[in-house]
């Protein structure tokens, strides 16, 4: 075990470099909320510059903003903390458009930000929950690949889900 994972008082700074060259200087305690970064820090130890060729700067910035809020809120461990986090999470995803949501979700998944993936997938689900099959195909850019009649049969079997 590296010493970095056991002490919370260290304010070591990490440099994260996004695919478009934008760099972010963040506290280790913030960045290691992301599983992928935590692994890199533990494995590579002394490396201070981490390159993330799969994440664009705009979305990396948003992911880190989320990490920062959660890291800050978790340090003061009073009871209302959970409520504050929930409230802030709601605000964070409130006005995300589909495009941003998609890229943010891909970034959070790539960086193994489990809690953030939870939040973003809940948001996606809340947007698609009541949609029709055709609308889902449009949203997810999927073409139906059923043979003629197959889709009808599935609809019939699950007719109650279409009421």
């Amino acid at each position: 075990m590296s010493s970095s994972s056991t002490t919370t008082t260290t304010t070591r700074l990490l440099m994260l470099k996004a695919s478009d060259g934008v760099t972010f200087e963040v506290e280790e305690a913030v960045a290691t909320k992301l599983g992928a970064i935590n692994n890199m820090v533990e494995e590579e130890g002394s490396e201070d510059l981490i390159c993330l060729p799969n994440v664009n700067g705009k979305f990396l910035g948003m992911v880190l903003e989320w990490c920062k809020k959660h890291a800050n809120n978790n340090t003061n461990s009073d009871k209302g903390n959970d409520e504050v986090n929930k409230w802030w999470d709601k605000e964070f995803v409130m006005d995300l458009d589909q495009n941003t949501l998609y890229h943010l979700l891909m970034a959070a998944d790539y960086l193994s930000g489990t809690e953030l993936v939870d939040l973003l997938t809940e948001k996606v689900a809340s947007m698609i929950r009541g949609k029709k099959v055709e609308e889902i195909r449009e949203t997810f850019k999927i073409k139906s690949d059923f043979l003629p009649g197959q889709e009808e049969e599935i609809r019939k079997k699950n007719s109650w889900a279409f009421e």
Partner: peptide
């Protein structure tokens, strides 16, 4: 459409049963 399957699973885990059963018809 290129969401990894594990992300799709996460999305599905937030959907009510009737939505899930309806979305069987997507592809």
């Amino acid at each position: 459409c290129d969401l990894p399957e594990e992300v799709l699973e996460e999305i599905f885990s937030w959907l009510p049963p009737e939505s899930l059963f309806r979305f069987k018809c997507v592809s």
